[in-house]
Amino acid sequence: MSRAHLAKYFHVLEIPTEATLRDVQNAYLRLKRLYSDHSIVLAPLEEEFTDKKRLKVLEEIEEAYHKLLAGIHAEPPKAAALFPEESPGVPVEKNLENMAYSGVALRKVRERLGIDLNEIAKELKLRLDLLRAVEDERFEALPEEAYLKGHLKNYARYLGLNVDRVLEDYLGRYVAWKAKKPGLKR
């Protein structure tokens, strides 16, 4: 199995070609954050490293991420199998383009990225049962909408997903459930 044709993209994300999907995800998030705002690392070069150049770097990072997601995802599980030169593999997000970000969809994305729920809980300092409730759509176990929104935002960002879309889809489902919920209305 060769990843030679993806080397360019691994280089953009500054990771070795043997990187896992997980590494790709981490590198992408890290670099996107780095080049999205004016940190002390970029500030001294602001005049030379222009916004135009910065946006170009961001575009390259975005492109590399999607190509790698597609490429790695399309890899056969067995190393013996041949890796097609021009793989039509689909990035995680693209695959879900027509699917709403339900709890099930979120879990699928997470699992495909090889990210453990425990890890998210630890990194985001969230309770594990809360994250499980999000993915299981056990809405009754979730906190107030304002809090839920904050948690969802972090969770979506951690997975490298479009935060606005996740909020819209998921909160839409949550609100719909709440409206139907018998009993107390606040």
């Binding site: 500054e14 890290r30 670099l31 940190s39 690392v41 970029l42 070069l45 490293f49 770097v57």
Partner: peptide, 12 residues
Amino acid sequence: LGASIKSVLQKY
């Protein structure tokens, strides 16, 4: 921070 500096120097 070191990783960020590495990135900026390489890309710039």
